[in-house]
Amino acid sequence: MRRPSPVMITALVFVAGFVICSLQFPNFASTRVVANLLTDNAFLGVVAIGMTFVIISGGIDLSVGSVIGFSTVFVALTTEKLGLPPLLAFAILLVLCAAFGAAMGAVIHVFDMPPFIVTLAGMFLARGISFLMSTESTPITAPLYSAVSDFGIALPGGGRLTAIALIMLAVVAFGSILLHFTRFGTNVYAMGGNRTATALMGVEIGSMTVRIYMLSSVLAGLAGIVFSFYTAAGYSLSAVGVELDTIAAVVIGGTLLSGGQGTAIGTFIGVLIQGLIQTYINFDGTLSSWWTKIATGVLLFAFIALQQGMVRLAGRSRAIRAGGVT
């Protein structure tokens, strides 16, 4: 049904990378490293799942990094300055994010504007608002935060599966089910395949667009909460440029940038690959951390080239099949 091969290649790259790291650094292959990989990239994983939906539907969401930044500031200010209970702050935040995403989706649909432009505007808007609220880093001292950071499922071998890692895994599971096993998910693929045809087949494109961007913004808000757990602070400059890391993770995960193809699990592995590169550089100790960007760039390029190749191959096999069936 959905061609599994790009995901297989992503998975192979991850496994190969992990094996190389393990051979080079004796302590690498441990539950500790794996658990840290999940924890350090939890927020990226959460937001990337939302981005996966958007890209498969044929869109793009550039606002997610700013929404994460906004979320951390919002949570920090409401809990610290206004004294709201964190859970209430989270609820309000997610509603705000949903409204923000819905508004972007509505503008995209109603005015028939390119998602690139609309979400670019959303990116500036969200970042601007978070600067308006505060330009300083605000530490979060709510008891919930220390409770969350203390929580962890001990793994054999010294690893600790943290709360935020669990949140990400839950989001990945939820995203997979939503994308692959529901009508909503099929509609997302349909829109990425051919918007006009999807509309002609009776799918409400407008409401789908709104819901897809809503999902992306809500997950970005959730990623912001996860990020605030991770740093225990709210800062308007946090997660600058994360939208690009997110898009990279989605594409490395085998999702076609033009839409219509992709998987949630692929995105998850794409996130882990980026994390793996970062971890390798940390282990090495001598390399500049900017090598992460360079390696990600090379991988991204390789994957896009690979996808082009596969699209072309698919075209060829189609011709063969057409001959065979008639």
Partner: peptide, 25 residues
């Protein structure tokens, strides 16, 4: 043909009216 080449034949036939149980196709 105004159908979706990237979806399966079955999904094309039943898009929007897939048989579901608890929201799962």
């Amino acid at each position: 043909v105004n159908l979706l080449p990237n979806l399966s034949v079955a999904q094309n036939l039943y898009l929007g009216r897939q048989p579901t149980r608890f929201g799962i196709v």
